[in-house]
Structure formats: C-alpha cells, structure tokens
C-alpha cells in the first residue's frame, strides 16, 4: 500500500493532512509532518501536495552513508533513526523534495505510507491504495 495523491486540483490548502501526520505521533502542530501542502506560486494558482511517492528503487536509500534508510515493501523507505546521523544527503537525492526535516530531532522526516492523513482529508485529495504495478513510475 502507498499513499496516493488522487487529485491535487481538489485540494483547498486546509493542511489538515499536515496536522494529522504530526498528531499521529501524539503532538499538535506540524513539526513532524511528512506531507506538505503549498501553493503553486500563490493561492490564486492552486495547490501542490508534496509527499514521498514511494519509489520502487529509492534514490534516497542509495545515498544514505549509514544504511539508515531501507527500501520498504510497496515502495519508499523506512528510517532507522538510531543509525541516522542527520547528514541530510537523502534530502538532496529526492528530486521531488519530499524529504522534510525535523528541526527538533535533526533527522529527516519521510512518509511511511500509513494513510493516517488520508483518513482526514475532507476533499478526496489523498488515498491509501495498492500500487498499480502495471504502470511504472517513469510512465506516470
């Protein structure tokens, strides 16, 4: 299963997904969120959803010098925080800028595709779904 952005055009920018992602860990605020909503050059032009798209062969894991990121079944990676030194190389490797930074822990924040945020999205932007294997990443 992976988190899928079904239709970013439906997004209203409420950021409730961002609050959900942090609340999952028992906090209020947005400091631990692995999904970000930002405008596409101003609110008048709409919004974009930035989140890990669960690469099958994740570049972030390849560059991790400490093997703190391991490929996850279904795509994406899992972070082992005890191995992570906070070097930040993974962020540079992510071309969609979906690796965020936990300023409090000084470690990357990466979506684990649990779908908690999708449960709260009020407008059908997000869904947790089976990877459609027949469509390779490059073709999307």
């Amino acid at each position: 299963m992976r988190l899928s952005v079904v239709d970013a055009e439906r997004c209203t920018g409420c950021q409730i997904c961002m609050f959900a992602c942090t609340r999952r860990l028992g906090y209020a605020g947005m400091g631990k969120t692995a999904i970000h909503i930002k405008s596409v050059g101003g609110m008048e032009r709409g919004l974009s959803v930035v989140v890990c798209r669960a690469c099958q062969d994740p570049p972030c894991a390849k560059v991790c010098p400490e093997d703190a990121l391991t490929p996850r079944k279904g795509g994406g990676v899992l972070l082992n925080p005890s191995k992570c030194t906070g070097c930040g190389l993974c962020r540079q490797a992510c071309i969609v800028s979906a690796i965020f930074w936990d300023e409090e822990a000084e470690k990357p924040i990466i979506c684990v595709h649990c779908g908690y945020c999708a449960r709260y999205c009020p407008h059908g932007v997000l869904a947790l779904e089976e990877r459609r294997a027949e469509v390779p990443d490059a073709a999307k």
């Binding site: 906090y27 605020g29 947005m30």
Partner: peptide
C-alpha cells in the same frame, strides 16, 4: 515557522480531535 506543540494528554487529545 514549523514546530510541534505539546498537549495535556495525547490519547485524549486525539479522541477530542
């Protein structure tokens, strides 16, 4: 800015949310 905020009781907070 971006940060987390503490709540009085994590479980009760999620339920009330």
């Amino acid at each position: 800015g971006n940060r987390t905020l503490e709540v009085a009781d994590k479980v009760a907070y999620r339920t009330l949310y």
